[in-house]
Simulated assay, not measured.
Amino acid sequence: MGRPNKYPDQFRKDAIELARSSGRPIAEVARSLNIAEGTLWNWVRAARDADSRAGDPEALSESERDELARLRKQVIELQTDKEILRRAAAYFARETMR
């Protein structure tokens, strides 16, 4: 169970809307609201991701994209390992037949 939210949902929505519509830098908006700049950045990014998922339900989240990249890299490494083992097995099979 996570910890309770420090800021009410309506405050978050208002802060996100202010950051989007004011034309001011997020750091300045965060200072005016007395919240950490990183906190507001996270809220804005999460809202942007939620908006993009609403437009395309099949869209991947940032963590899913990171995991996909990690898994693709792992597949390449495993394919390389498999090819090395296949060649080694063929080499040793030839050596035992001599």
Score class of each variant (00 low, 15 high):
6 K>R: 14
7 Y>E: 09
8 P>T: 13
9 D>M: 06
10 Q>N: 05
13 K>M: 08
13 K>N: 08
13 K>G: 05
15 A>C: 02
16 I>L: 08
16 I>F: 00
18 L>S: 01
18 L>C: 00
19 A>Y: 02
19 A>C: 05
25 P>A: 11
25 P>D: 07
26 I>G: 05
27 A>F: 03
28 E>V: 12
30 A>N: 03
33 L>H: 00
34 N>T: 07
36 A>P: 01
37 E>A: 12
37 E>G: 06
37 E>C: 02
38 G>C: 11
38 G>H: 12
39 T>P: 01
39 T>C: 06
39 T>E: 04
41 W>V: 13
41 W>F: 12
43 W>N: 01
43 W>T: 02
44 V>E: 09
45 R>N: 12
46 A>V: 08
48 R>Y: 11
48 R>D: 14
53 R>W: 06
53 R>M: 15
54 A>K: 13
54 A>H: 11
55 G>P: 04
57 P>R: 06
58 E>Q: 02
58 E>K: 02
59 A>T: 09
59 A>N: 10
59 A>E: 13
60 L>T: 07
61 S>Y: 09
63 S>I: 14
66 D>G: 12
66 D>K: 15
67 E>Y: 11
68 L>V: 09
69 A>D: 14
72 R>E: 06
73 K>N: 11
73 K>P: 03
77 E>W: 04
78 L>S: 07
79 Q>L: 06
79 Q>V: 03
80 T>C: 01
81 D>V: 01
82 K>A: 05
82 K>G: 01
82 K>H: 05
84 I>T: 03
87 R>S: 02
92 F>M: 10
94 R>G: 05
94 R>A: 08
96 T>R: 15
97 M>P: 04
98 R>K: 15
